[in-house]
Nucleic acid binder design. Structure first.
Lengths: 105, 105
DNA sequence: ACACCTATATCACTTTATGATATATTCCCA
DNA sequence: TGGGAATATATCATAAAGTGATATAGGTGT
């Protein structure tokens, strides 16, 4: 896939979690909890992606971070990217649902 | 990400297209058209993924294929995988939307 | 004291995705 | 009628992404 800046699934999850200030470990826990353990992002993926999102300036190191916990939050740019991606994902779902429905008939 | 069998975005697109019998080129065109050119899956990705889906038995070579056009279709197993994945994707979207909404307040 | 949870980090490897390119057929129209 | 555009499938070599394993260290409770 590609062309524009579509987010990978993992990036999408992490950015969705960062609509509120959260630190890495909290993000992992949140995703695991909200998906009932179906989706797991381990530390390797987590911190790899965090690094990428930082360089892309889609997230930033939020105040309230101490040496132990680094708290991140979406930048304005990041929020827009997330919203853009959300639209595309809805379109994807629409495509699949239409297809599945039509196949039933 | 991972744990269970979540589909990659590209796999999801292709499988969504294969709720009806379609050949590779038609899948590429469909995706490009329905997303207004935002998403493009080139031949390399296309045929790589087709191959994987075949070995996984999520799609099969459909009747009506001649030597020139190979037409594929979802297997029952594939349809279930797609439906399963669809649920997860809806959940993802829910998570993101809730987060974005709450952040506005 | 020590076991356990929280928290971040990286290395080495696997899996996925893709640009470039090749090849062949069919369609149209000048 | 011949040649360019569109259709169609395929692969190679590389780049990008994801992840298991592992390391390190501060907290907390008992």
């Amino acid at each position: 896939m590609k062309k524009s800046e579509q987010l990978t699934d993992s990036m999408f999850y992490i950015m969705a979690a960062l609509t509120k200030p959260r630190h890495g470990y909290a993000i992992m826990s949140l995703i695991e909890e909200t998906t009932g353990g179906v989706i797991t992002i381990g530390p390797a993926s987590m911190y790899t992606i965090i690094k990428k999102l930082l360089t892309q300036e889609w997230i930033y190191l939020h105040d309230g971070s101490d040496s132990r916990r680094k708290t991140y939050l979406l930048t304005e740019k990041g929020r827009k990217a997330l919203e853009e991606d959300l639209k595309l994902r809805k379109q994807m779902i629409q495509l699949a649902e239409t297809g599945l429905k039509e196949a039933e008939e």
